[in-house]
Design a binder for these strands. Structure first.
Length: 653
RNA sequence: GCUGGCGUAGCUCAACGGUAGAGCACCUGUUUUGUAAACAGGGGGUUACGGGUUCAAAUCCCGUCGCCAGCUCCA
């Protein structure tokens, strides 16, 4: 090794900074193994120690190698594919001749991994010429790695530990003994290279940390997150229900509907202040609409089609009289006769509405809002609680405006989104700009303009964003606002999308100041996004403890004994007259049991009524959020206190 | 849709080839109660559905439906 290119280990040793907790080194933002020669002339390095955040992906990736080693030792003939570190741990994909891995297999693998870690085998990096590497992978009978190497460019390296070898660019921990805390968590199928046309491999997920303490904390956090799962909490609090006869289609119970409507009413108040007009549009349309909008060509597999008996008869008749040549032709005959489609989005009907009248530039920007129910057919494997359903409503609106108005509308909308998320005490959302997908309508020049409009609009606000390549809607690019659920899964909620395509397809126009006809731009936007999804994420965010302004029941009045029931009922009536949501528990239970019941339902306030309260015409009030008895209050004081929290924070006077 | 797992009372779970059970919830009674569970009694199940194996199936096998974790796809 030449003098100029020393390793991180050598450098740190010279500087007496080499502890036994150093995992790797960082030079100018790049991470190297301790034993890898650093770029020429490097004299300053930063040691990445075990507790450094940058150590985590290294530890996890190295653990993935050890897992793959263990798997191949235990299950000969198993081939390996990819095995990266992820946000929460790592995985490795395998092609196992015998099929999948069981729970028992995972335990055996963990045991074998412990042996490998115990052996304290150094990870060794080895640059290799392409031909040698391909020969090596062929001899190892690793077709996936071989295929991968053919796609790779630049310097190729392998990593060894013990007798195990993997095509890998590193970096890795110095030796297996640095892996001190790991757990294999679950298995899953995963397509090779993420493409569903490819064979499905077996994936084993695991996680690893610098110390057993960190691992334990992580596993505990996962357990706690599970307790917040909106499917569990939503059921416990009697907010939502599902029935097998309506798969992926939530029922909102009376309590859940209260919250649902409170969310919509909240948005309606904002609409009043931001110049939106709410409309109501049909559910089912002649499919000609969806031909025009592009949904049938580009969104067909997500649409529910609807047919009447007459349509079915006509289709049947044609099929009997002129039998179609194949399945495809038969499908065509049927869809030709199934005249109706259930709307999957509101935009087509809003285009119809815009086009029904001669429009003036004076009307623009025209902001049309719609809580219309949408139906989208989602494949059975993708649905999930409230966050991915087949029927939902959005706090949807379409803004028809001039080119010049676009950036102003985007800026206003971003303000609106941030204000709303603050009202729900969410962290600032992560913003993505989703660009043109492969499956799309419209010319590239139009997409160029639309993408530029969004990027300019967001940039003007100075908020950070990332580009999500190819993730746009089929009709236009999107700005997406993402929040995470209790399990750390990220969901798109709000969005604003620039659309130059639909106005074109619907031939929309307005009369300008110059008395000439112009094409409007259309912005699709939603703040909550899907109300269903927002509800689900919100349940998890508040852990079922809905703030007073959303709580289905704001106050439960409980009586100490049945003698006081009459006053309790009277008090509830009086408070309800003031617009509060109040219930009375007159069940034949002891006070403690009634309090417990109300607390389990996460009611923000509990009011106890006994002899003293009847006499003073008030309640002994307990606050859920303060977790304390707040003392005696007259009914007027109770009303004032609750009414102060009765509206969203930003709407309070 | 794909891979794997799961489906027993309203809920949480037991029984894992040999008579379907518990706690909570529910109903009825007793109790009149002061801040997280009073006591007693009672009702409730074609073990998701359909088929098969077996003297015997909740239990084993096949199919359908649904749910869960991922993958692919998306608000």
């Amino acid at each position: 090794m030449d003098q100029q290119r020393r390793t991180g280990r050598q450098l740190l040793a010279e500087q007496e900074k080499l502890g036994n907790d150093v995992v790797a080194v960082e030079v100018g933002g790049q991470v190297f193994d301790l034993h890898t020669p650093l770029p020429e002339g490097t004299s300053e390095v930063r040691a990445i120690r075990q507790n450094d955040p940058k150590a985590l992906p290294i530890i996890r990736h190295s653990t993935a190698h050890v897992m793959a080693d263990a798997v191949q030792k235990l299950f000969p003939g198993t081939k390996v594919a990819f095995g990266p570190a992820t946000e929460a741990g790592f995985f490795y994909d395998y092609d196992r001749p015998g099929g999948s891995f069981s729970e028992a297999d995972l335990e055996a693998i963990e045991q074998k991994m412990l042996e490998i870690i115990e052996s304290d085998s150094p990870f060794v990096r080895e640059p290799m010429a392409r031909e040698d590497l391909m020969a090596l992978l062929s001899s190892m009978n690793e077709p996936y790695k071989l295929e991968h190497v053919q796609r790779l460019e630049g310097e190729l390296t392998i990593y060894r530990h013990g007798d195990w070898v993997d095509l890998c660019e590193g970096p890795h921990v110095p030796s297996t003994r640095f892996l001190k805390a790991f757990k294999l968590t679950h298995t899953a199928g995963a397509y090779w290279r993420g493409d569903e046309r490819n064979p499905m491999l077996q994936r084993i997920y695991g996680t690893a940390f610098a110390s057993p303490k960190d691992l334990k904390a992580h596993l505990k956090a996962l357990e706690e997150a599970k307790l917040r799962d909106h499917r569990k909490v939503g059921k416990e609090l009697d907010l939502i229900a599902f029935h097998p006869l309506a798969p992926a289609s939530p029922f909102f119970t009376a309590r859940g509907a209260r919250i649902y409507n409170a969310l919509c009413d909240y948005v309606r108040e904002l609409y009043d202040r931001h110049g939106y007009e709410e409309v109501i549009t049909p559910q089912v349309f002649d499919n000609e609409l969806f031909e025009t909008s592009g949904h049938l060509p580009a969104y067909y597999e997500n649409m529910f089609l609807a047919a009447s008996k007459e349509h079915l008869e006509k289709a049947a008749k044609e099929i009997v009289e002129k039998p179609p040549a194949d399945v495809h032709a038969c499908e065509h005959v049927m869809t030709e006769h199934f005249r109706f489609g259930v709307k999957p989005m509101n935009c087509p009907s809003h285009c119809l509405l815009f086009g029904m009248k001669r429009r003036s530039y004076r009307e623009l920007p025209l902001r049309i809002a719609d809580f219309g129910r949408l139906h989208r057919y989602e494949r059975s494997g993708v649905v999930q609680g409230l966050t991915r359903v087949r029927t939902f409503a959005q706090d949807d609106a379409h803004i028809f405006c001039t080119q010049e108005q676009v950036s102003g509308e985007i800026a206003d909308f971003i303000d609106l989104v941030h204000r709303v998320y603050e009202d729900f005490a969410f962290q600032a959302p992560k913003i993505y700009i989703a660009t043109r997908p492969d499956k799309r309508i419209g010319d590239d020049a139009v997409w160029d303009a639309a993408e530029k409009a969004l990027i300019d609009g967001v940039s003007a606000k100075g908020v950070p964003f990332e580009i999500a390549e190819g993730e746009g809607a089929f009709y236009g690019p999107k700005v997406e606002f993402h929040l995470k659920d209790a399990l750390g899964r990220s969901w798109q909620l709000g969005t604003i999308q620039a659309d130059f395509n639909l106005p074109e397809r619907f031939d929309l126009s307005y009369v300008g100041a110059n008395n000439e006809s112009h094409r409007p731009v259309m912005l699709h936007r939603a703040v909550l996004g899907s109300v269903e999804r927002f509800f689900g994420v919100l349940i998890e965010h508040v852990g079922g403890n809905f703030p007073t302004w959303l709580a289905p029941e704001q106050l439960t009045i409980v009586t100490v004994a049945s003698d006081f029931d009459a006053f309790a009922v009277e008090a509830a009536k009086e408070l309800r007259r003031k617009g509060l949501r109040v219930s009375v528990d007159t069940s034949n239970e002891r006070l403690g049991a009634k309090i417990r019941a109300a607390r389990l339902m996460r009611v923000p306030y509990i009011g106890v009524v006994g002899a003293k309260e009847v006499e003073g015409r008030g309640l002994q009030l307990r606050s859920r959020d303060l977790n304390a008895d707040v003392g005696f209050s007259t009914l007027d004081e109770v009303a004032a206190r609750l009414l102060a929290e009765h509206r969203a924070p930003s709407l309070r006077d």
